[in-house]
Design a protein around this nucleic acid. Structure first.
Length: 104
DNA sequence: GGCATGACATTAG
DNA sequence: TCTAATGCCATGC
């Protein structure tokens, strides 16, 4: 870990933290913005270790097609949080990426 | 340094 | 639309 450069994990936090209210971003986008176009999996791994105390809007991080890759309690929590921000979720549990996708 | 893991992406059928 | 298979990359042991 260099002091000059943040680790991928740190970069991911910054990117996710930069997602504005009522918007969503895909794992691939986060990874790309963090400097690794194909490191989407690491985003998921990082978030899985993310403590609930973290202020990161992890619920705004979804799949490329607006799909939620989580399951069970976390999935419900995420959907609830997104709807609370005005994001509409389809019956299939998907989000309209064309409307809500965060484009920097 | 190598192997296994993971909240994915993409392609093909 | 869904499932299966493959590739990619950082992290932990």
């Amino acid at each position: 870990m260099n002091d000059d450069e943040l680790s991928f994990e740190q970069q991911a936090w910054l990117v996710i933290n930069a997602i504005p209210y009522g918007r969503v971003a895909s794992y691939g986008d986060i990874a790309r913005l963090a400097g690794h176009p194909n490191a989407a999996r690491q985003i998921g791994r990082i978030l899985s270790k993310l403590p609930e105390q973290s202020k990161l809007p992890w619920h705004r991080v979804i799949g490329q097609q607006g799909t939620l890759s989580l399951s069970g309690e976390r999935l419900l929590c995420q959907q609830e949080a997104l709807r609370s921000e005005g994001v509409i979720i389809n019956e299939r549990g998907r989000v309209c990426m064309k409307k809500y996708r965060w484009q920097p």
